[in-house]
Nucleic acid binder design. Structure first.
Length: 918
RNA sequence: GCCCGGAUGGUGGAAUGGUAGACACGAAGGACUUAAAAUCCUUUGGCUUCACGGCUGUGCGGGUUCAAGUCCCGCUUCGGGUACCA
C-alpha cells in the first residue's frame, strides 16, 4: 500500500470533526495550557504560504502539551474590522460585512486543509455584535474610571467626585489631560455641564481637543503606531497634525506598569526592548527658570541637570503656549512669521528637511544656578508634545543644540575635561566635569546625581520621570468598526446603559463621509437614542477588537460577561502567544493596557495577558526570472545570459521547479510568450532568482492549497518547520520540499512493504531502543525550545537508521508515531490506527526518554595534537582519565605524531576528547 | 544617530568552548527499467596527492584558551525597530 496522503488526510480531518476531537472544556482535574495565535485579518487575497508558519508552530506545541497531559485551549478567530474591506466597499459598493464573510469562509477553508487542532466552537469575529458588545462594554468601564497615580491603578469616577466634593483638587493623585485647581466649594457651585467637562479631564476613556494624526486620504485620524515617518502604515498616505476633538484612552498613565510588567513575562529580548523604547521612560529633572525683569517663570525637562553651567540659550517649541507670553514687542512680527511658517509644514516635511531654523523671542531667562542671562529662542526642533515643550540648550553636549548654536552663532561652553567641541558636540555621558561650579571634578554620572539633589534642595526644580508613550487616539472617522456606546446631551458625551448593548452598526447608503464632512455614520437613519439624543458618529479603531479577544476565547458564548470568573480563574492568561513582530508597539501595548485595566477592576485574575511570546519570522518571497534577449521573443538560460543583452523578467514561481522553467507552461502563462523560443543549457532552461517580498506583482506567491494538493498537509507542516529556525525571517523556497515528502514515504515503508503490513511484535534490541530514545530526547528538548527545524531532522535521522536496520517492530514504531503526531498529525493518526489503536493519537501519552538506553559502552575519542584531530581511538566509556591518557600516549599513532618530543601537557575530557599539547 | 539581530559549502541550514558543515535540496556517477517516473546505492567545502595523507577553511583584524563558528575587543556589511524625546 502506498502512502496515499489525500485519502488519509481527508479521512482523519472528518474523523476529528465528527468526534469533536478538538473541543475543549474546563477540566479541574487537568492542568491547563493556553496556546494562542495572533488572529488574522481576513484579507481578500487569502492565505499565502507564509501565513501558516506561526499557526503550525503553535499547533505543534498545542498537540505536544495535550500529549503531555494538559488541557489545552487553542482557539482561532478573525480580526474582522479593518480598512481594506471598507476601502473595497467604497470602490465597489459591496458591504464590508459581505466581503468579510466571504473572506473568512475562504480563510477557514484554507486553514482546515492544514489540519489544525483549533477548537472552532470558540471561534470569535470582532465584527459580530455578540463579540463587540464587550468591546463597547469595556469602553464604558474606561469612561467610568480614572487612574490613581499614587495607587497606580484605576478607580471609579464616583470616588473621584467624592474627593472633589470634600477636598477639591487639593490632594488628588490622578492622570489628567491638564492640571486643574479648584476647591470643594468651587466644584459644588459648578453646573452639571461644567462638572462633566471637568471629569473628562480625568476619565481613562476621555474626549478632548488633541493634536492628532490626520490622514486625509483615509479620511480618518490615526494612532501613533499607525503612522511611521510621517505617512500611514497602511497605504503610505501623508499624515498631518491637526487639533480635533477625539476619544482617547489614557494608556500613558499605565506607562510605568507597562514597563515593570515586561520583567515578569518571557518575551524575546528584542520585543521587550522595542516596547521599552516605545514606552520611553526617561528620568531627569524639571527645572524652573525665571525671566529677566519679569515676574514670570517656566519649566524645562532635562536628563542632564549636570550640564546646567553650559546652558547658553533656551528653546521653545513653536506650538508652545509660552511663545505668546515670552515674545517681546520688538520680536512679535518675526516670531509670528516663524510660527506661521512652521505650522504650514507637515510632520513629514519637518522630518525630511532638517535645516536649522528658529527665531529669537526677545526675552531672557536667568540660569537658576549660575545666575547668567540666557536668550530664549523658538525653534521647531523642540516638540510641544514632549516634556514641557521647552528646553535648556547645552550646545557643547547635545548635537541638536550644537547645530542650532553654530547656525545662529551662539556661545558653546565645554563642561567636560579634555573634550573637543570645535567641530561637534560631545554627547557621551562620560568624563570629568569642569567649568561647572560645585560639580567640578565629578564624573558625569556623579554630577547628574549631585545636580538633581542640589536643585531639589534649593527648590529650583524636582526629579521627574517622563514617558514617550502617548495616549491612544480612539476615534476613527470610518464606517467599518465598533460604534461607540455614546450619545450626546447638551454637547457632552454620556454612556448608554449597559442593557442597551450591543449598539449595532447601522446600515448606510454609501460608505463615505456626509456632505457636511461628518463621518459615514452621519448617513445612518435614526442614529439616536430612544429619547432622541444623537449617537456618536465615530467608530473605534482596529485595535479595539483585538485588545481583549484572548479573554473572550475563554468563555465565548457568555452573554452575561466578557468572561466568567470561573473560566478566567481556570484559563487565567495565555501561556504561549505566537505571532509576528509587527504588533510590537500596537496590539501588544494596547492589549496589555486593556488587560491591566480589567485587572484593576478585579475582572481578570492576571495582570499580564501573555506570559510567553514567540515571534515567528517573516516568510519572504523567492522570485524567479527569465532573461529575454533584447527586442526578441527569445529567452536565454541563466548561465548563458551574459553572452547576450537581456532583460530580466519575473516569471511565476509556480511554473518553475528547482529553478528549471517548464517552457510549455511558460508559453501558456501569458499570450505574449506564446511563440517564445529558448536558448537552453543541457536541454533545460535555468531561471535566476532573488529574495523579495511575497507579492502578486513579483509572481512569487505560493498558495498553501497547491502544496497540500501536491504533497499533502503533513508535508507542508513539516517543510515549513524544516525551512529554518522559527524566529528567523527566511524566503519560501519550494525547492527541498521533496526531501520532506520522501521522508514521510520512507516512514510509511517501515509499516508496509508493497501491500503487506510488516509491523511485528518482536522485542527490539539495544540499538533500536537507543535510536528511539535518542530521538525522544532530542525532539522533546527541541519542542520545548521551539527548535522545530532540528526536530524534523531528528525524525529523518531516526527513520533513516531504522530503515537501515529494517526495523518494523511495533514497540519502536508506536512511540515514534506518537512522537511525530504533533508535527504530522494525519499520517500519525493513520499509523496509530494501523498499529491497532482505536482512539485518537491526540490523546496518547507522549513517550518519555529512558536514559538507560542511551548509555554508551564505548567512546570514540578523537586524539588531537595542539587542537588538531589526527585519529580516533575507541575506548570503554567508563575508563578513567588516567587509563585513557595511558593508552592514548602508548598508542603507536600517537608516537608517530609526537615525533619523539614529549608533550607539555595532556588534556583529557572524559567521554569527549584527548588533546596533546606539544 | 541610537537599540536589537545576523554573516558558516552551489542552496536552506546543524553544531551545552571539545571531530565544523548534522539533516535536507541540488549536482555527479551507478543499479533497476525497452524508456521515463518512483525507488535504492556511492560521491559531494576548497586546494593538493596515483593513493595513504597533507594543507586550508565559519565576513575582516586582534585577543583569551590545551582547544574558538561559539567568549572578549575593534572593524566591515546586511536585516529589523526607532527617532529632532532634550
Amino acid at each position: 500500500m502506498e502512502y496515499n496522503f489525500r485519502e488519509i488526510e481527508q479521512k482523519w480531518q472528518s474523523f476529528w470533526k465528527n468526534n469533536n476531537t478538538y473541543k475543549t472544556e474546563i477540566d479541574q482535574l487537568k492542568p491547563k495550557y493556553y496556546v494562542l495565535d495572533m488572529f488574522p485579518y481576513p484579507s481578500g487575497a487569502g492565505l499565502h504560504v507564509g501565513h501558516p508558519l506561526g499557526y503550525i508552530a503553535s499547533d505543534i506545541f498545542s498537540r505536544y502539551k495535550r500529549l503531555k497531559g494538559f488541557n489545552v485551549l487553542h482557539p482561532m478567530g478573525y480580526d474582522a474590522y479593518g480598512l481594506p474591506a471598507e476601502q473595497y466597499a467604497i470602490q465597489t459598493g459591496q458591504h464590508p460585512a459581505v466581503t468579510t464573510k466571504k473572506n473568512i469562509a475562504r480563510y477557514r477553508e484554507q486553514l482546515d486543509k492544514i489540519g489544525f487542532c483549533y477548537d472552532w466552537n470558540r471561534e470569535i469575529r470582532t465584527c459580530e455584535p455578540d463579540y463587540y458588545r464587550w468591546t463597547q462594554w469595556a469602553f464604558i468601564q474606561m469612561f467610568n474610571h480614572y487612574f490613581n497615580t499614587k495607587l497606580q491603578k484605576a478607580q471609579s469616577i464616583e470616588s473621584l467626585v467624592k474627593i472633589f466634593e470634600t477636598n477639591g483638587t487639593a490632594e488628588i493623585h490622578t492622570s489628567c489631560t491638564e492640571e486643574l485647581n479648584f476647591t470643594a466649594g468651587e466644584w459644588k457651585s459648578k453646573t452639571e455641564k461644567e462638572q462633566q467637562e471637568i471629569l473628562l479631564n480625568y476619565r481613562i476613556a476621555y474626549l478632548a481637543d488633541l493634536k492628532v494624526n490626520w490622514c486625509s486620504a483615509l479620511g480618518t485620524v490615526l494612532a501613533n503606531d499607525e503612522v511611521s515617518e510621517g505617512v500611514s502604515v497602511r497605504g503610505g498616505h501623508p499624515v498631518e497634525q491637526r487639533v480635533m476633538r477625539q476619544w482617547s484612552l489614557r494608556v500613558s498613565s499605565y506607562a510605568q506598569r507597562l514597563l515593570d510588567g515586561l520583567n515578569t513575562i518571557e518575551w524575546t529580548e528584542s520585543l521587550t526592548e522595542t516596547q521599552k523604547n516605545w514606552i520611553g521612560r526617561s528620568e531627569g529633572a524639571e527645572m524652573t527658570f525665571n525671566i529677566k525683569d519679569r515676574d514670570f517663570n517656566f519649566e524645562v525637562f532635562t536628563t542632564r541637570a549636570d550640564t546646567i553651567y553650559g546652558v547658553t540659550f533656551m528653546v521653545l517649541a513653536p506650538e508652545s503656549e509660552l511663545v505668546k507670553q515670552l515674545t517681546t514687542v520688538e520680536q512679535a512680527t518675526a516670531v509670528e512669521n516663524y510660527v506661521a511658517a512652521t505650522k504650514k509644514r507637515t510632520e513629514r516635511e519637518r522630518i525630511a528637511d532638517r535645516r536649522v531654523s528658529g527665531v529669537f523671542s526677545g526675552s531672557y531667562a536667568i540660569n537658576p544656578v549660575s545666575g547668567t542671562e540666557i536668550p530664549i529662542w523658538i525653534s521647531d526642533y523642540v516638540l510641544a508634545g514632549y516634556g514641557t515643550g521647552a528646553i535648556m540648550a547645552v550646545p557643547a553636549h547635545d548635537s541638536r543644540d550644537y547645530a542650532f548654536a553654530k547656525y545662529f552663532n551662539l556661545p558653546v561652553i565645554a563642561l567636560i575635561e579634555g573634550c573637543d567641541v570645535s567641530e561637534e558636540s560631545f554627547d557621551a555621558k562620560e568624563g570629568i566635569m569642569m567649568n561647572s561650579g560645585f560639580l567640578n571634578g565629578l564624573t558625569v554620572k556623579e554630577a547628574i546625581q549631585k545636580a538633581k539633589e542640589y536643585i531639589s534642595e534649593k527648590g529650583i526644580g524636582r526629579v521627574k520621570v517622563n514617558f514617550r508613550l502617548r495616549d491612544a487616539i480612539f476615534s476613527r472617522q470610518r464606517y467599518w468598526g465598533e460604534p461607540f456606546p455614546v450619545y450626546y446631551k447638551d454637547e457632552l458625551p454620556y454612556m448608554l446603559d449597559e442593557s442597551k448593548l450591543p449598539l449595532e452598526l447601522p446600515e448606510i447608503d454609501k460608505f463615505l463621509p456626509t456632505e457636511k464632512g461628518e463621518p459615514p455614520l452621519g448617513r445612518a437613519q435614526n442614529w439616536e437614542t430612544e429619547d432622541h439624543f444623537p449617537l456618536e458618529l465615530n467608530t473605534m479603531p482596529g485595535f479595539a477588537g483585538s485588545s481583549a479577544y484572548y479573554l473572550r476565547y475563554m468563555d465565548p458564548k457568555n452573554d452575561k460577561a466578557l468572561v466568567s470568573k470561573e473560566a478566567n480563574q481556570y484559563w487565567r492568561s495565555v501561556d504561549l502567544y505566537i505571532g509576528g513582530t509587527e504588533h510590537a508597539t500596537g496590539h501588544l501595548v494596547y492589549s496589555r493596557f486593556w488587560n491591566k485595566f480589567l485587572f484593576d477592576l478585579g475582572l481578570v485574575c492576571e495582570d499580564e495577558p501573555f506570559k510567553k511570546l514567540v515571534n515567528q519570522g517573516m516568510i519572504q518571497g523567492r522570485s524567479n526570472f527569465v532573461y529575454r534577449i533584447k527586442d526578441t521573443n527569445t529567452f536565454v538560460s541563466l548561465n548563458l545570459k551574459d553572452q547576450y543583452e537581456t532583460t530580466a523578467i519575473h516569471v511565476d514561481v509556480n511554473i518553475v521547479s528547482n529553478d528549471v522553467l517548464d517552457t510549455e507552461k511558460f508559453k501558456n502563462w501569458n499570450p505574449e510568450y506564446k511563440n517564445a523560443e529558448f536558448v537552453l543549457e543541457d536541454g533545460k532552461y535555468h531561471c535566476g532568482w532573488a529574495v523579495e517580498k511575497m507579492s502578486k506583482s513579483m509572481y512569487n506567491v505560493v498558495n498553501p492549497d497547491d502544496i497540500v494538493e501536491k504533497y499533502g498537509a503533513d508535508t507542508l507542516r513539516l517543510y515549513e518547520m524544516f525551512l529554518g529556525p522559527l524566529e528567523q525571517s527566511k524566503p519560501w523556497d519550494t525547492n527541498g520540499i521533496d526531501g520532506v515528502h520522501r521522508f514521510l514515504k520512507k516512514l510509511w515503508t517501515l509499516f508496509y512493504k508493497e501491500d503487506t503490513l510488516i509491523v511485528n511484535n518482536e522485542t527490539p534490541g539495544a540499538e533500536e531502543l537507543k535510536i528511539l530514545h535518542k530521538t525522544i530526547k532530542k525532539v522533546t528538548f527541541d519542542i520545548e525550545n521551539f527548535s522545530y527545524n532540528t526536530s524534523v531532522s531528528a525524525f529523518m535521522i531516526c527513520v533513516n537508521e531504522l530503515f537501515t536496520l529494517k526495523c518494523s517492530k511495533k514497540q519502536i514504531l508506536e512511540p515514534l508515531t506518537i512522537l511525530i503526531a504533533p508535527f504530522a498529525p494525519h499520517i500519525a493518526e493513520e499509523l496509530y490506527h494501523i498499529l491497532g489503536n482505536e482512539d485518537t493519537v491526540c490523546d496518547a501519552v507522549f513517550p518519555i526518554c529512558d536514559e538507560e538506553y542511551l548509555k554508551e559502552t564505548a567512546v570514540k575519542y578523537p586524539i588531537s595534537f595542539n587542537g588538531k584531530v589526527r585519529f580516533m581511538l575507541e575506548l570503554p566509556a567508563d575508563m578513567s582519565k588516567e587509563d585513557v591518557e595511558r593508552i592514548a600516549m602508548a598508542n603507536e599513532q600517537t608516537l608517530k605524531y609526537l615525533e619523539g618530543k614529549s608533550p607539555k601537557k595532556v588534556i583529557i575530557v572524559q567521554g569527549k576528547i584527548v588533546n596533546i599539547v606539544l
